[in-house]
Design a protein around this nucleic acid. Sequence first.
DNA 1: ACGAGAACCTGTTTGC
DNA 2: TGCAAACAGGTTCTCG
Length: 277
Amino acid sequence: MPELPEVETVCRGLRKPLEGRRLTKVVQRRPNLRFPIPDRFPERLTGRTVLRVDRRAKFILITLDDDTVLIVHLGMSGRMTIVAAGDAPPPGPHDHVEFETDQGMMVRYCDPRRFGLMDLTTADELKDHRMLKSLGPEPLGNAFNAEALDQALTGKRSPIKAALLDQKNVAGLGNIYICEALYRAGISPKRSAHTVPGKRSERLVREIRAVLQEAIEAGGSSLRDYVQASGDLGYFQHRWKVYGREGEPCQLEGCDGTVRRIVQSGRSTFYCATHQR
DNA sequence: ACGAGAACCTGTTTGC
DNA sequence: TGCAAACAGGTTCTCG
C-alpha cells in the first residue's frame, strides 16, 4: 500500500496516540522483517517516552526521550492499526510488533510480505543511517525544484520512469504516483531521463507536488473516519487517473487515447501514448 | 559506473 | 471447479 502520501497519513495518525506517551510494553513476535530487528528491541524501547513522529521519504521516524530513533518502513504490505489495548483482537500470523502506551492504546504493526523494516539508531547518527544517507530531496520540500531535478537527470540514459523510482533522485515517489505525475505532466514514461530537463521538468515538478499534495489531503480527510471505524491506518481510497486503468479511455479533456500498460524495470507502468510524449 | 533484472515474502487475482 | 501463473504500493543485491 504505502507510498509517500500513505506514509504521511500513517505518521499523522500515529501522533495522537504516541507523541508524549510512554511505551509501557513492546511485543516482538519474530526476529526479522526484511532485515533482523535489533537485539533487545523491546527492552530498548520499553519505558521510553515518544517525543516526535516524523517522516523522511517513506520512512517513519519515531524519536524517543533518550535520543533513540525508531526507524520503521512499511515495505509493500505493512500496516499500522490503533486499538485500545483491552479491545485488541488476538494477533494474526502477520502481526509482528506491538507497542502499548501508558494511556492504554496499542499500535500494531502487520506486514504479510515482510518487506518492511524496523531499526534503532540515534538522532545524531540518523543522517548517516544506511537506509537514509543516499536519499534525494523530499518532493514536497523546498530543495526539490526544476534545477535540482535537472541536475539529477543529467546524463541519465534510463527512462524517466526508472529515474523517478530511484530514491537518490527524489525521495518518496513510488510506482503509482510516478505514473500519475507523468500522466498529468504529459511526459512519456519511456522518455530518456536526460531529455526531460527544461520546460518538461518544470511541469513535472509541479505535477509531482500537486498529485502528492492532493493524495495527502484525501488521506487526511479519510483518516478521521477511517481510524475511528477500524483503527487501520495507511490505507485510503484515492482516484487514480491512469494507474490500474489499462484499456480505459484517457480521461484528459480532449484526448482520445487509451490507457496502456507496459513493464519497465519489472514494474507495471500505465500511460496514454497519445498525449504523453 | 550504470542500468536491467533477480531476490526477498505472502496473499489475491487471473487464466487455462 | 481447480490449479498454476501472474501480479501486488519497495528496496537491495548481483550481474553484464
